[in-house]
């Protein structure tokens, strides 16, 4: 998606589908590898917060197969979804990760991705 946003400082927003906005936030900040992380997603459309969606975050490293690292996010209400996970450290020194957010609302499935470096 290529949005210029720094997950170390703020939540990052994207358009999941026409009229459907999504933001991803990772805490604690700065985002570090090998620590317990909390992923928070907010989902909204023209009518306000969207609940009842199935949300998952797949973490991968561009150009390096790292296996499936998926966090399933649970709905908190008011369009918020939260899950926990860990980003492993690559001993090669590479720090760039990609988070693919998979969202399913009813029959509609959307996918957006975020690129970020870990400390």
């Amino acid at each position: 998606m290529g949005e210029d946003c720094n997950l170390h400082e703020q939540a990052c927003a994207a358009v999941l589908a026409p009229g459907v906005a999504v933001t991803l936030d990772i805490s604690p900040k700065p985002v570090r590898a090998m620590t317990d992380l909390e992923f928070t997603v907010s989902l909204s459309d023209r009518n306000g917060p969207v609940d009842g969606a199935q949300v998952a975050l797949d973490l991968s490293m561009p150009g390096m197969f790292m296996g499936e690292n998926r966090s399933i996010l649970s709905g908190l209400g008011n369009g918020l979804y939260q899950g926990k996970g860990v980003i492993p450290k690559c001993p090669s020194g590479k720090t760039l990760w990609r988070g693919d957010l998979q969202v399913q609302v009813g029959d509609v499935t959307g996918n957006v991705w975020f690129l970020f470096s870990v400390k």
């Binding site: 090998m34 490293m61 390096m64 197969f65 790292m66 296996g67 499936e68 690292n69 996970g85 860990v86 492993p88 450290k89 690559c90 001993p91 090669s92």
Partner: peptide
């Protein structure tokens, strides 16, 4: 040996 791939499966 530390390895990112094996870490992923250790997380699992």
């Amino acid at each position: 040996l530390p390895c990112g791939l094996s870490y992923t499966f250790m997380i699992a």
